[in-house]
Each structure stands twice: as structure tokens, then as C-alpha cells.
Computed example of a mutant assay.
Amino acid sequence: MEAYQPLSRSIAGKVAIVTGAASGMGRATAHLFASEGASVAATDLDQGRCDAVVQEIEEAGYPGSAKAWALDVSNPDAIKAVVADIAQNLGGIDILVNNAGFAIPADIAEDSYEQSWEPTMAVMLTAHQRMIRAALPHLRKAEHPRIVNVASTEGLGASPGNSPYVAAKHGVIGLTRGLAVDLGREDITVNCICPGPIRTGITDGIPEEHKTIYAKRRVPLRRYAIPEEVAHMTLSCVLPAAGFLTGAVIPVDGGLTIKNA
């Protein structure tokens, strides 16, 4: 019998990019990765909000573990420049978490539909592949390269009046699976997290009473999650020990997608 082989559950010393890191799940992921010893590149549209997250991390007892970059992920030139700058400043890239996103309600019959479709696809689908392509030369040099794409339970089903978001999130799942096959030969894992009802900026506008009613009706755990619960699943996907996990689509939804009634 072969000897037991211990596998590392530490990301200490790894360099991780987190997009959409100024709030919600991205912010929680940046905090968690920094607390686990990674060097975190926190990116978001607003430099000031990114700086604030880095300051939070430093005040939490992890000085120097995170740096902020302003990044509009809908801008392909900005992606190339920022990813290259991160790699140069932090000494490479080991982990990429594509998390940036937003939600714009859209009615297919309205003229404004295109105004929702275009930015939704640009930020939540096209940007994922551009971030991966920009990071790929650096990931190929990493010892345990990891990519995590954040989709949604809307990528596993659909809610009304939300079709651009639904289409983008379905696309993220397809992109994840396709790249898991393409990059597997290089030992680069690509996985997808599908959060359900989470307390983030996107759901802030929902009245608390409506959150409670929805959770009790649809979610077996009968509550909304906090962003940190999603961040911990993301961490599990990027561990060196997770080397045989790829192409996975993981709902973090309190059981929402398995409940029939």
C-alpha cells in the first residue's frame, strides 16, 4: 500500500487577483485570502473603494498583504495593462478570481434592453475570458495555478425580467467547462461558483421582509448567506490540495437549486 500523501491546504505566498473586490463577495474573498497568507491584488472600478478595502485588511492585522488597482473589466486594454502591472509588482500570478458583476433588470420588449445586454455581457462574460487570457502566461509559470469564475444560480435556472444577467451567467458556466478541458493538460484548474441569495450590494435594495419571505419559501436553510460563506468555497477551490477539481459548477445557495417545492 502506498504511503499517505499529505496535500497542502495553504495559499500562503500565492498571488491572487480578485475582481470586483470593493464590495460583497469580492471584498470578502480579498479579506479571506489575505488572512490566509496570500498577496492579494484587489481590483474594482473605483480606486478609492479598492484602497478602502486594502486599508481594512491592513487594520485587520495583515499589513502589506493586499494592494489596490482600479480596473474597468469592460476595457480590454485596461485588463492587459493592469494584469501585467500586478504580475510585475507582486511577482507573478497564481490565482485568478473573476468576480466583478452587477445586475440591471431588463424587459425584452423595451428599447432599453440593448442598454442592459451590452454592459452585462461585457462585464460578466467577455471580461472573464479576457482576464484569463491576460493572466494565462503568468498562471502557466505557477506551481498550482487556479481560476475561479463566479456565476450565479441564475446560470442554472432563470428569474423573470433578468435575461441578460441569466444569459451571461449561463455563459460563465460554459466558459468554465470549456476552459477546464482546454487548460487541463497544463494542470490549470478552472471552476465555477454559483452563489444563490447572498447579502451583497445587488440584494441591498430588497426589503428585509421580502428577503425573509423568499428565503423561507425557496431556501432549505431559510436565510440569505453572507459573502464570507461564498468566499470560503472560493478558497476551497484554489487550494493546492484541490488539484483534481476542475470544471466543477458549485452552487452556494442554501439548497435553493435542489428544492422542488
Rank of each mutant, 00 (worst) to 15 (best):
E2L: 13
A3H: 09
Y4S: 03
P6S: 12
R9E: 11
R9L: 10
R9Q: 12
R9I: 04
K14L: 11
K14A: 14
I17S: 06
G24T: 07
M25P: 03
G26L: 06
T29A: 12
L32V: 08
F33G: 04
A34N: 05
D44N: 14
D44V: 13
Q47K: 14
R49I: 07
C50Y: 03
D51S: 09
D51T: 10
V54P: 02
I57W: 05
E58F: 10
Y62L: 09
A78C: 02
I79E: 04
V82S: 01
A87Q: 01
Q88R: 10
Q88E: 13
G92T: 11
V97S: 09
N98E: 05
A100H: 04
F102N: 11
I104P: 02
I108Q: 06
S116W: 08
W117G: 00
W117I: 07
T120C: 00
A122V: 14
L125N: 00
T126L: 09
Q129L: 14
R130P: 08
R130C: 05
M131V: 11
I132K: 02
P137Q: 08
K141I: 12
E143A: 15
E143R: 12
H144I: 02
P145M: 07
R146S: 13
V148W: 04
V150K: 04
G155P: 06
L156H: 10
S159P: 01
G161T: 04
P164T: 13
P164Y: 10
K169I: 14
H170R: 14
G171H: 03
V172L: 03
T176V: 07
G178H: 11
D182A: 10
R185K: 15
D187G: 12
I188A: 09
T189M: 13
V190R: 00
N191A: 08
I193V: 06
C194N: 11
C194M: 09
C194Q: 08
G205L: 06
P207S: 04
P207T: 14
P207M: 05
T212L: 09
A215Y: 06
K216L: 03
K216M: 05
Y224G: 04
A225T: 11
A225D: 05
E228G: 15
E228M: 13
E228D: 15
E229S: 10
V230P: 02
C237K: 00
L239Q: 01
A241T: 03
G243S: 13
F244N: 10
L245W: 07
L245R: 07
L245I: 15
G247N: 08
A248E: 15
A248L: 15
V249P: 06
I250C: 01
V252R: 00
N260M: 15
